[in-house]
């Protein structure tokens, strides 16, 4: 019951822009969550494997490569396949509004754009955990 929220921060694809992923990882850690950062150049398969192995509650992906329409649905599908469809899939990056809407319909959680306050991300994940999971961060 009092387990801390566990978050996997993932950086899929070939893109190396990891400033955002690291800043968010630090913010979640400072907010009391357990954060695992995958590092760069991860395939969707590697990310889902890590999410299952580490038994995280939340998978948060940073995508600045324009590949978000490929990456998020693929990770979502792989999570379902592994019986981990209950995990929150969220993230952020350079993602146009209309694409965010499209991804939402495919079961992806909130996606945060440039200029986001990290406390909004913390709050969103805590709120999700309160309503969906058994843990408290």
């Amino acid at each position: 019951m009092d387990r801390r929220i566990r978050v996997l921060v993932g950086k899929p694809g070939l893109d190396g822009h990891d400033r955002g992923a690291k800043v968010v990882a630090a913010a979640l850690r400072d907010a009391g969550m357990e954060v695992i950062y995958t590092g760069l150049h991860q395939t969707p398969e590697m990310i889902v494997e890590a999410a299952v192995q580490e038994d995280v509650d939340v998978v948060a992906l940073s995508v600045l490569s324009g590949a978000h329409l490929t990456v998020f649905p693929r990770v979502r599908a792989l999570l379902e396949e592994r019986g981990a469809g209950h995990k929150l899939l969220t993230g952020g990056g350079i993602i146009p509004d209309e694409d965010i809407e499209m991804l939402k319909q495919k079961g992806v959680g909130r996606l945060f754009g440039p200029g986001t306050n990290t406390s909004d991300i913390v709050e969103y994940i805590r709120e999700w955990a309160r309503t969906h999971a058994h843990s408290e961060g």
Partner: peptide, 19 residues
Amino acid sequence: TIMGYDSDDPKCIGEVGVT
């Protein structure tokens, strides 16, 4: 291209010509 992969490498799905 920046990473040295051909466009048909499986690692590149969704990233060809994008950025």
